[in-house]
Amino acid sequence: MISTVQEATNLSGEYLAGGTDYMDRLRHHLVNENSIDLNGLSGLDQIETEGGKTYIGALTSMFNVAQAPHIRQNYAGLAEAAGGLATPQIRQVGTIGGNLTQATRCQYYRHPHLECTKKGDASCGGRDGYHPYGVVFDNGGCVAPHPSTLGMALYAYEAQVEINGADIRPIADIYGDGSNHHRDHLLGKNELITKIILPAPVAEKATYFRSIARARAEWALVECTARLVIDGDKIQQAFIAVGGVAAVPLRLPHVEAALVGKSATAESFADAAQLAAEGANPLPQTGYKVPLLVNTVEETLIRALG
């Protein structure tokens, strides 16, 4: 049993944390069967605070992230994201580190006979095929949106990740700009996320919301985390991140800029949300996601205000 991070990162193979993504891909022959079981690493399933910041061990289950009173009180947008993804049974097993590094959910990826750049094929089979769950900010390669709900929520919290117990990077660095169509994240083979670092809490109105067809337990068509720091009735700061629309999670700085200085009203939310789709170039089957993106951002802002 591996007991230190150094031991784990010196091995060659594929990391196995909760296993919810690994075991599924194992059945589809999409893993390195030489798994590096991280279950023996101690201390990585804790939520701690130090110097105002919050440190979430990468092996903390989604259930525990969602339930922890400290996270619920201070980082509601993250707690709700962790509690709103997948299913209760998966949230018990899956870890926050695994959620950030999970593989795409595109059908073409898991299908044994269809092409997918994430499997190493030269082209994306979904582009001329079936892609209604695809991106609306298309950059010409893989058409699947990034699957990590928590990655998206962490963009809104300007979180950092600790790699191999030492190296600290902004969350956005592990995903890049989405131009590498062969990777779900940009971590090297010997790089392991050990902690997630959240900045000191601020008094905020925050929430997470996903648009889906059914009531629950469905991959997001579009999802959003919104945080508003409000003084009196004026928005001082806004942090908006969205998922389901691009190869990587997106921050929406132009929406945020449009909110800052405005009153927290339905009108200003609607106006700002309009900007969410700026630059969208949807695929033939994802045109509906352009208005849905705008409307989901608006909905999330309204819900954040409560």
């Binding site: 296993g19 919810t20 690994y22 079981d37 998966i90 018990q92 097993v93």
Partner: peptide, 12 residues
């Protein structure tokens, strides 16, 4: 705690 045993490594 309820867990889906299809995605749960037996070692757990």
């Amino acid at each position: 705690n309820p867990m889906c045993s299809c995605l749960l490594p037996a070692s757990r």
